[in-house]
Amino acid sequence: MTLLSVESIDKSFGGVAAARDVGFSVERGEMVALIGPNGAGKSTVFNMIGGQLKPDRGRILLDDADITTASPQERFRRGVGRTFQVAQTFLSMSGIENVQMALISGHHQSRRLWQPARTLYREEAFALLECVGMVEAADRPCSTLAYGDVKRLELAIALAGEPKLLLMDEPTAGMALRERAALMDLVSTIAQDAKIGVLFTEHDMDVVFGHADRVLVLLRGRIIAAGSPEDVRNDPQVRQAYLGDSHALTRSV
């Protein structure tokens, strides 16, 4: 059974089409990259899958269940985890409390008024921090962590909901170079082990071609190419989209 299947979704803003007839799928344990130049509609597509936007047309299915109009909260309960372009964590809490908060919500415990939160699911949270290599940051305030660590913490938060599908919006943006590959290797391993499908957007082509099983190329709201990194790299349309009109090159000199 296909994990995520996006069926010809459209979205326009005030008459301007941001996504046109976009369709693709993501399988369990697969890493899929969504790339394209600025303004190609990556964020629009991403936010429709994450639940921040509703498509004008088309369907989004998760494990064959229609989630086209589901709220972000409903999607979370159905197994969608996500990270944001600018990492979103709870800055007033410690590292482990961030993960505990996600576990508390995942277990429908967020309205309890008596039991101290810091005693709940501490071991599970610790295990998740261990998984992303953040044990030493467990009791440090999130606001004092380096940005690369915040990104990893956010991954642990997203994993706390035991997602089937992980959405990562520019997972390495703002990170130092050496941290980027390490983070994506980690994601890759976790996705393999837990059979999680990963859909990510990314600007860093090294990250895309080094870690994606499949690549989707978006241009002016349409998918113009999809396939293995090798195929996409050699696609003339893609080269054109990124390199521009080759005639302009000859004209300029």
Binding site: P37, N38, L243, G244, D245, S246, A248, L249, R251, S252, V253
Partner: peptide
Amino acid sequence: QNWAFAAG
């Protein structure tokens, strides 16, 4: 980003 344009 459209560097053909820039080159010109």
